[in-house]
Amino acid sequence: MNPRHRFWISRVLLILMVFSLSACAGIQPVQPWEKGILAKPEMTFDGDKLDNNFTEHIYSSKEAASGGAGVGGGGCGCN
């Protein structure tokens, strides 16, 4: 890993930490009985899997950037 990457990764880890700390510190924790809305499917990050697959596939074959949401997913020789 070159120093530039190391710099970036440490910066992002810092963002992650600040994010989690601020989430823990400033805000009242949500209790289990208050999670009725959070349990709704539209509040998860999963979404419509087939839709996401198509969308990700199209953009990764028309733009230079890809990934972000996780690992896995097949490559292609898309033109």
Binding site: V12, L13, L16, F19, K35, L38, G67, G68
Partner: peptide, 13 residues
């Protein structure tokens, strides 16, 4: 989970 109506995520890849 941030509030009863907010959830957030940060991913590093």
């Amino acid at each position: 989970v941030i509030t009863q109506q907010d959830i957030a995520q940060v991913n590093l890849g």
